[in-house]
Amino acid sequence: MDARLRRVNKEIADCKNDKTSNIRIDLIDSSPFHLKGSFPGPEDTPYQGGHFEVDIVIPESYPFQPVKMKFITKVYHPNVSSASGAICLDILKDAWSPVLTLKSTLISLQSLLCSPEPNDPQDAEVAKHYTTSKHSFDETARYWTKMYAQAPGAGVTKEDTVAAAGLEKAHVDQFEALGFPRAKVVDVLRRLNYRGANVAQITEDRVVEELLK
């Protein structure tokens, strides 16, 4: 039997037998090389209570080359692209070692959620948000967890663009009142990182200038 197939089969079986880690690996289609991993959000983080799914593609030269992983579930995190789910993690690149397994990699992803690295970001806007105001960032990350990762929470049924962008409703209302479309206001304020201490530094004129572009 092909060494790669044998190894993947064993890894899937191992993961099934391990009840303590809460990590699951499932097949997406009939191929054993395209999988879906999932794990619960780590406790005492904004991701607590969420259920995160990861798309796993096992390359031809696995385990000598790293697996390709990206989040299926939308995650608000500096090292995860908020648009595509792409992950910035060293063991998925040059720090990969053949002794690492799908399970250990998924555990690493779980711990990445605990300890973001905003200095080496995948998503620059999210990282800016994180460094500007940790509190506001946590709020938004929690909102995303409720919205996309099925965390239990009251009142989140319809997507609220303002909360999802990590902005204050009052700020958006203020510029919307000037006659700009709401979606555009959200987009510009998010790009300018109009949050926390930054609000005092960005003049209203600057925002309007951006809105007029």
């Binding site: 060494a3 044998r6 190894r7 064993k10 385990p63 053949p98 002794v99």
Partner: peptide, 9 residues
């Protein structure tokens, strides 16, 4: 028997 930790052979 030796079990390879990479390919589990």
């Amino acid at each position: 028997t030796f079990v390879c930790s990479i390919c589990f052979d």
